[in-house]
Nucleic acid binder design. Structure first.
Lengths: 247, 247
DNA sequence: CGACGTGTTGATTCCTGTCAATACTCGTGG
DNA sequence: CCACGAGTATTGACAGGAATCAACACGTCG
C-alpha cells in the first residue's frame, strides 16, 4: 500500500548517494553507526501522500531519491507549495509532534527515515548532526525568503522565467553541458507549477507559451525545455544579477 | 551617526529582558560568560539602515528592543519584506560573509551584537547556542512558509485581516486583556504593511477602510486598531482554524 | 474506441495596480 | 498664532493583468 518498507537499498551509509549533502554529511563513522541503528527506508509512489498536515510524525527523514512537495491548503481548496524536496533535503521538524504541511511524492520517492525520538536525542548529544541541520535550515530559510519576493512582487512571466532558471541552475550544477543551450526536464505538472508560483494553471500555460513565442525558451514535448540563451532567460526573471549562476 | 556603540545597557546577561527567549536562552552561566566577552550593544534610530544587502557582516546579533524589517528590493524598486524582527529575534547568518537582505530599523532598535568569528567558533564548541539557534531557525522557516501561503494565495482583504490578527495575537500573548475587544498598535506604516503583504499602499488603505466599514475593526487614529470581535476578524483571514489563538 | 489526465487557448470578469487629487498630522519658523 | 512643508493616509477614476469559465487538443491506458 502506501509507504512500504524497503529492505535495504545500500550496503551502508558510506555508499549512500546523498551521504555528503544530507543531514548526515558531517558525521564521523561512529555517528553514522548511531544513525544506522535508528534508520529505515521507505518508498512512496508518484502522487502518494507521505504525510498529511496534522498527522503525527514518528520519523524525520532525508530524501534519498525522487521529488516531493511541501504544500499548504486552505479550506476552500486554494493551495500553495511552500517547498520542493529534492534528494538530500530533510523532511520533518525535530521537536514537533505533528506535521505542519502536506508532503506528497511527485514521482517515486525513497526516504531514509530516522525514528524521531532517538534522532532528537542525537541532536542533543552529537554536535555534527545539529550543526549540519542548522546549516540546512538556514539555507532553506534563505530560499523561502527569496520565494517570498517572487510570490509577492513578481509578474506571472517573471515567475515562470524564475522557476525555469532555478531548475536549469540545478541541472547545470549536476554537471550538464551549458555551452550551447541548456535542456531541462520540468519535474512538475502545470498544476504543481501553479501551486508553486501562486498562479492558476491556465496562466502558467499561457506564460510558457508566451516565452516560447518570444524565443526565450523552446519546448520539446510538454515537459522538456530548451534554453538557447541563458542570459535572455535571466533577463526575464526580474532579478538584478545572475544569482551566481554564470561563471 | 549610524549605529553608535552604547556603553552598557544591563549589568549582565542575567538582567537582560530577552535572556530567556533569544539565542542565548539555553546557555549555562559559563557559556554566558563566553558570550559576554564577544558582545557589544548598538542602537539604531528609526528609519536607519542596520545593514544593506551585500554588505560585509562583522557581527550577528539579537534584537533587544525595537522593531526592524528584513527586506529585499528589485532593481526597479519593487520591494518585499521577508521578515519582521522583534525583540529576541536573531539577525545575521553564521557562516556567511555578506548580508543577503536589507535590515532597517522601524523605530529605535537596540542590538546585542556578537563578533561573527568568535560566535561561529562558539557554535562549534558549545552545543546550547547551536541547539537554540536551530530551534529559532526552524520556527522562522515555519513562519516564512505560512507567509508564502498568504503572499501566493490570499486576497487583499484576507492579507490585511491576517496581518492584524497576527499582531493582535502577539499583543495578547504579551498579556493584554482580550475579554471585550482587543486594541493593538500597528508598528508599521501603510507602506511597510504593503511591503510585507505584497500589495500597494493604496490597496492596504482601501482594505483597512473596508474592514472598518464592515465593523470588523475600528480605528483610533491611524495606527491603533480596535477589534471588537476577534472571531469575526479571524473569519476574514481565510484560515480554517484560529491558529491556536483562542483558548 | 472512449475515458481520463494533462495541457492549450479563447472570452470575459474583476481584483488590484497605477495615476492623481485631497486630507490629516506634526514640526518648524516667520 | 498661523503659514508652510514634509511625511503619511484616504479616496477616486481608470487600466491592466491574472482569474474564471469554457471549449478543445493530445497522449495513454483500459
Amino acid at each position: 500500500m502506501r509507504g512500504a518498507t524497503t529492505p535495504e537499498l545500500f550496503d551502508s551509509c558510506s555508499s549512500c548517494p546523498i551521504r555528503h549533502r544530507a543531514v548526515c554529511a558531517r558525521c564521523e563513522p561512529d555517528e553514522l553507526d548511531q544513525l544506522e541503528d535508528i534508520k529505515y527506508y521507505r518508498t512512496f509512489e508518484a502522487g502518494q501522500p507521505i504525510v498529511w498536515a496534522g498527522d503525527r510524525m514518528e520519523f524525520v527523514a532525508s530524501v534519498v531519491a525522487g521529488v516531493a512537495t511541501l504544500t499548504q491548503t486552505m479550506e476552500d481548496g486554494r493551495r500553495q507549495m511552500v517547498g520542493l524536496l529534492l534528494p538530500s533535503d530533510f523532511v520533518g521538524r525535530p521537536g514537533r509532534e505533528t506535521a505542519k504541511f502536506d508532503v506528497t511524492a511527485v514521482n517515486t520517492v525513497t526516504l531514509c527515515c530516522f525514528r524521531r525520538k532517538p534522532f532528537e536525542h542525537m541532536l542533543e548529544t552529537t554536535p555534527h548532526v545539529a550543526q549540519r541541520l542548522l546549516e540546512m535550515a538556514l539555507d532553506e530559510l534563505d530560499a523561502a525568503r527569496e520565494w517570498m519576493l517572487l510570490l509577492g512582487r513578481k509578474t506571472a512571466r517573471e515567475k515562470i522565467a524564475s522557476l525555469i532558471a532555478i531548475i536549469a541552475r540545478r541541472a547545470s550544477i549536476d554537471g550538464a553541458d551549458t555551452t550551447d543551450g541548456v535542456s531541462v526536464e520540468l519535474p512538475l505538472t502545470r498544476e504543481a507549477m501553479s501551486d508553486y508560483l501562486g498562479l492558476t494553471l491556465e496562466t502558467v500555460s499561457r506564460q510558457i507559451s508566451a516565452l516560447k513565442k518570444d524565443s526565450v525558451i523552446l519546448l520539446d514535448g510538454n515537459r522538456r525545455v530548451l534554453i538557447p540563451d541563458m542570459r535572455a532567460l535571466l533577463d526575464e526573471t526580474g532579478d538584478d544579477d545572475d544569482g551566481g549562476m554564470l561563471n
